[in-house]
Amino acid sequence: MIDDFAKEYLHGDLREFREVLLRKLDGLSEYDIRRPLTPTGTNLLGLVKHLSLSEARYFGEVFDRPFPEPVPRWDDLDQRGTDLWATEHETREEITGRYRRAWEHADTTIAALAIDAPGHVPWWPRPDVMLFNVLVHMLTETSRHAGHADILREQLDGGVEMDPAAMAQRGQDAAFWAARRAEVERAAKAAGGAEPVA
Protein backbone atom coordinates (compact mmCIF):
# COMPACT_ATOMS: atom_id res chain seq x y z
CA MET A 1 0.00 0.00 0.00
CA ILE A 2 2.65 2.55 1.01
CA ASP A 3 4.77 1.54 -2.00
CA ASP A 4 1.98 2.41 -4.44
CA PHE A 5 1.30 5.67 -2.60
CA ALA A 6 4.99 6.65 -2.60
CA LYS A 7 5.42 5.80 -6.28
CA GLU A 8 2.34 7.77 -7.34
CA TYR A 9 3.21 10.71 -5.09
CA LEU A 10 6.76 11.03 -6.45
CA HIS A 11 5.64 10.43 -10.03
CA GLY A 12 2.86 13.01 -9.71
CA ASP A 13 5.27 15.69 -8.50
CA LEU A 14 7.71 14.81 -11.29
CA ARG A 15 4.94 15.25 -13.88
CA GLU A 16 4.02 18.63 -12.40
CA PHE A 17 7.59 19.98 -12.42
CA ARG A 18 8.12 18.86 -16.02
CA GLU A 19 5.18 21.00 -17.11
CA VAL A 20 6.35 23.93 -14.98
CA LEU A 21 9.73 23.83 -16.69
CA LEU A 22 8.25 23.83 -20.20
CA ARG A 23 5.94 26.75 -19.35
CA LYS A 24 9.02 28.88 -18.71
CA LEU A 25 9.62 28.94 -22.49
CA ASP A 26 6.14 30.27 -23.31
CA GLY A 27 6.07 33.60 -25.10
CA LEU A 28 9.85 33.98 -25.34
CA SER A 29 11.93 34.48 -28.48
CA GLU A 30 14.45 31.95 -29.77
CA TYR A 31 17.22 34.19 -28.50
CA ASP A 32 15.78 34.55 -25.01
CA ILE A 33 15.26 30.81 -24.46
CA ARG A 34 18.87 30.15 -25.50
CA ARG A 35 20.79 33.11 -24.15
CA PRO A 36 23.23 32.50 -21.30
CA LEU A 37 22.00 34.30 -18.21
CA THR A 38 24.72 33.25 -15.78
CA PRO A 39 28.51 33.27 -16.03
CA THR A 40 28.41 29.48 -16.61
CA GLY A 41 25.96 29.82 -19.51
CA THR A 42 22.77 28.56 -17.84
CA ASN A 43 19.79 29.05 -20.15
CA LEU A 44 16.18 27.91 -20.34
CA LEU A 45 16.31 25.65 -23.40
CA GLY A 46 19.53 24.08 -22.14
CA LEU A 47 17.80 23.06 -18.92
CA VAL A 48 15.10 21.30 -20.96
CA LYS A 49 17.72 19.59 -23.13
CA HIS A 50 19.65 18.46 -20.06
CA LEU A 51 16.56 16.98 -18.40
CA SER A 52 15.66 15.15 -21.62
CA LEU A 53 18.96 13.33 -21.48
CA SER A 54 18.62 12.70 -17.74
CA GLU A 55 15.15 11.16 -18.04
CA ALA A 56 16.20 9.08 -21.05
CA ARG A 57 19.18 7.67 -19.17
CA TYR A 58 17.78 7.25 -15.69
CA PHE A 59 14.50 5.65 -16.72
CA GLY A 60 16.06 3.94 -19.73
CA GLU A 61 19.45 2.28 -19.49
CA VAL A 62 19.42 2.19 -15.68
CA PHE A 63 16.52 -0.27 -15.84
CA ASP A 64 17.62 -2.00 -19.05
CA ARG A 65 14.83 -0.23 -20.95
CA PRO A 66 16.86 1.87 -23.41
CA PHE A 67 15.36 5.06 -24.78
CA PRO A 68 14.69 4.40 -28.48
CA GLU A 69 16.58 7.49 -29.68
CA PRO A 70 20.34 7.96 -29.60
CA VAL A 71 21.75 9.58 -26.46
CA PRO A 72 25.40 10.25 -25.69
CA ARG A 73 27.06 7.69 -23.48
CA TRP A 74 27.47 8.72 -19.85
CA ASP A 75 31.21 8.05 -20.01
CA ASP A 76 31.87 10.05 -23.24
CA LEU A 77 33.95 12.91 -21.86
CA ASP A 78 33.79 14.82 -25.16
CA GLN A 79 30.00 15.09 -24.77
CA ARG A 80 30.03 16.38 -21.17
CA GLY A 81 28.20 19.66 -20.87
CA THR A 82 26.84 19.70 -24.43
CA ASP A 83 23.42 18.81 -23.05
CA LEU A 84 23.25 22.15 -21.23
CA TRP A 85 22.81 24.37 -24.28
CA ALA A 86 21.24 24.26 -27.72
CA THR A 87 23.13 24.82 -30.94
CA GLU A 88 21.73 27.10 -33.61
CA HIS A 89 20.80 23.96 -35.57
CA GLU A 90 18.56 22.50 -32.83
CA THR A 91 15.04 23.84 -32.78
CA ARG A 92 12.86 24.53 -29.77
CA GLU A 93 10.39 21.97 -31.13
CA GLU A 94 13.08 19.28 -31.44
CA ILE A 95 14.27 19.79 -27.88
CA THR A 96 10.87 20.11 -26.24
CA GLY A 97 9.58 17.20 -28.33
CA ARG A 98 12.50 15.02 -27.21
CA TYR A 99 11.79 15.99 -23.60
CA ARG A 100 8.16 14.93 -23.95
CA ARG A 101 9.19 11.65 -25.60
CA ALA A 102 11.77 11.03 -22.87
CA TRP A 103 9.20 11.58 -20.17
CA GLU A 104 6.68 9.33 -21.97
CA HIS A 105 9.36 6.63 -22.02
CA ALA A 106 10.06 7.33 -18.35
CA ASP A 107 6.36 7.17 -17.49
CA THR A 108 6.13 3.77 -19.19
CA THR A 109 9.10 2.53 -17.16
CA ILE A 110 7.65 3.91 -13.92
CA ALA A 111 4.25 2.32 -14.61
CA ALA A 112 5.78 -1.05 -15.52
CA LEU A 113 8.08 -1.43 -12.52
CA ALA A 114 7.54 -1.81 -8.80
CA ILE A 115 9.06 0.90 -6.64
CA ASP A 116 11.68 -1.56 -5.40
CA ALA A 117 12.62 -2.74 -8.91
CA PRO A 118 16.41 -2.98 -9.20
CA GLY A 119 18.44 -0.73 -11.45
CA HIS A 120 22.09 0.02 -12.03
CA VAL A 121 23.58 3.54 -12.31
CA PRO A 122 27.21 2.95 -13.32
CA TRP A 123 28.15 6.61 -12.81
CA TRP A 124 27.04 6.64 -9.13
CA PRO A 125 29.38 5.64 -6.27
CA ARG A 126 26.73 3.14 -5.07
CA PRO A 127 25.45 1.99 -8.45
CA ASP A 128 22.87 -0.60 -7.36
CA VAL A 129 19.58 1.24 -6.89
CA MET A 130 15.83 0.82 -6.91
CA LEU A 131 13.19 2.70 -8.89
CA PHE A 132 12.53 4.61 -5.66
CA ASN A 133 16.08 6.04 -5.68
CA VAL A 134 15.80 7.13 -9.29
CA LEU A 135 12.36 8.68 -8.80
CA VAL A 136 13.66 10.72 -5.87
CA HIS A 137 16.78 11.69 -7.83
CA MET A 138 14.86 12.81 -10.92
CA LEU A 139 12.25 14.66 -8.88
CA THR A 140 15.06 16.50 -7.08
CA GLU A 141 16.91 17.20 -10.32
CA THR A 142 13.80 18.42 -12.14
CA SER A 143 12.58 20.62 -9.28
CA ARG A 144 16.08 22.06 -8.89
CA HIS A 145 16.23 23.00 -12.57
CA ALA A 146 12.65 24.30 -12.49
CA GLY A 147 13.85 26.63 -9.73
CA HIS A 148 16.75 27.73 -11.93
CA ALA A 149 14.23 28.34 -14.72
CA ASP A 150 12.07 30.46 -12.37
CA ILE A 151 15.00 32.78 -11.75
CA LEU A 152 16.08 32.88 -15.40
CA ARG A 153 12.56 33.74 -16.57
CA GLU A 154 12.23 36.44 -13.93
CA GLN A 155 15.53 37.93 -15.14
CA LEU A 156 14.27 37.96 -18.72
CA ASP A 157 10.86 39.57 -18.35
CA GLY A 158 9.76 39.48 -14.73
CA GLY A 159 7.60 36.41 -15.38
CA VAL A 160 6.89 34.36 -12.28
CA GLU A 161 5.06 31.06 -11.81
CA MET A 162 2.25 32.47 -9.72
CA ASP A 163 -1.45 32.97 -10.25
CA PRO A 164 -1.77 36.57 -11.56
CA ALA A 165 -5.34 36.96 -10.21
CA ALA A 166 -4.30 35.83 -6.74
CA MET A 167 -1.29 38.15 -6.83
CA ALA A 168 -3.51 41.09 -7.83
CA GLN A 169 -5.98 40.25 -5.07
CA ARG A 170 -3.14 40.39 -2.54
CA GLY A 171 -1.93 43.70 -4.00
CA GLN A 172 1.24 42.16 -5.43
CA ASP A 173 1.58 44.34 -8.51
CA ALA A 174 4.74 45.83 -10.02
CA ALA A 175 4.83 48.56 -7.37
CA PHE A 176 4.58 45.96 -4.60
CA TRP A 177 7.53 44.00 -5.99
CA ALA A 178 9.62 47.15 -6.54
CA ALA A 179 9.03 48.12 -2.89
CA ARG A 180 9.85 44.57 -1.75
CA ARG A 181 13.08 44.57 -3.75
CA ALA A 182 14.07 47.94 -2.29
CA GLU A 183 13.35 46.64 1.22
CA VAL A 184 15.49 43.55 0.64
CA GLU A 185 18.29 45.71 -0.83
CA ARG A 186 18.18 48.07 2.17
CA ALA A 187 18.40 45.14 4.61
CA ALA A 188 21.29 43.59 2.65
CA LYS A 189 23.25 46.84 2.65
CA ALA A 190 22.60 47.39 6.35
CA ALA A 191 23.72 43.85 7.20
CA GLY A 192 26.80 44.24 4.99
CA GLY A 193 27.88 47.42 6.72
CA ALA A 194 26.98 49.70 3.84
CA GLU A 195 25.08 52.88 4.47
CA PRO A 196 21.37 52.10 4.24
CA VAL A 197 19.53 53.85 1.46
CA ALA A 198 16.88 56.21 2.82
Rank of each mutant, 00 (worst) to 15 (best):
V134N: 04
H120Y: 15
V121Y: 10
R73K: 10
P118I: 13
N133G: 00
A86N: 08
P70Q: 06
R57K: 12
V71N: 00
E93M: 00
E104K: 13
D116A: 15
W85Y: 15
P127Y: 10
W74E: 03
H120M: 13
E141Q: 06
P72W: 10
H105S: 00
R73D: 06
E141V: 05
R101D: 05
A111F: 03
T140C: 07
L139F: 15
V134F: 08
E104V: 11
D128G: 11
E93C: 02
G119M: 14
A56C: 07
V121Q: 09
W103F: 10
E141N: 03
V136C: 05
E90F: 12
H89P: 12
Y58K: 02
P66I: 14
G81H: 06
R65D: 01
W124I: 12
V136H: 02
G97A: 14
A56L: 06
M138S: 02
D83N: 12
P122L: 14
R92F: 08
S52R: 00
F59G: 00
T142C: 00
D107K: 00
D75T: 12
Q79E: 12
A114Y: 04
R101L: 07
A114E: 05
E61Y: 09
E61T: 11
R57A: 03
G60C: 11
I115Q: 04
P127R: 09
T109L: 04
I95H: 01
T140K: 03
E61Q: 13
P125Y: 10
R100K: 14
P68L: 15
A111V: 08
D64N: 06
R80I: 15
V62D: 05
A114F: 08
M130S: 02
D78R: 11
P68T: 13
I110Q: 03
E141H: 04
G97I: 14
V136T: 04
P70E: 08
D76T: 03
E93V: 00
T87M: 11
L77A: 10
I115S: 01
L131K: 00
D75N: 13
W74F: 08
V71I: 08
E93D: 05
G60F: 06
D107A: 05
R80Y: 15
A86L: 11
W123N: 01
M130Y: 04
T142Y: 01
V62F: 07
I95Y: 01
P72L: 12
R73V: 09
R57F: 04
W103M: 07
P122S: 13
D78L: 12
V121P: 04
N133C: 03
V62M: 09
E94I: 07
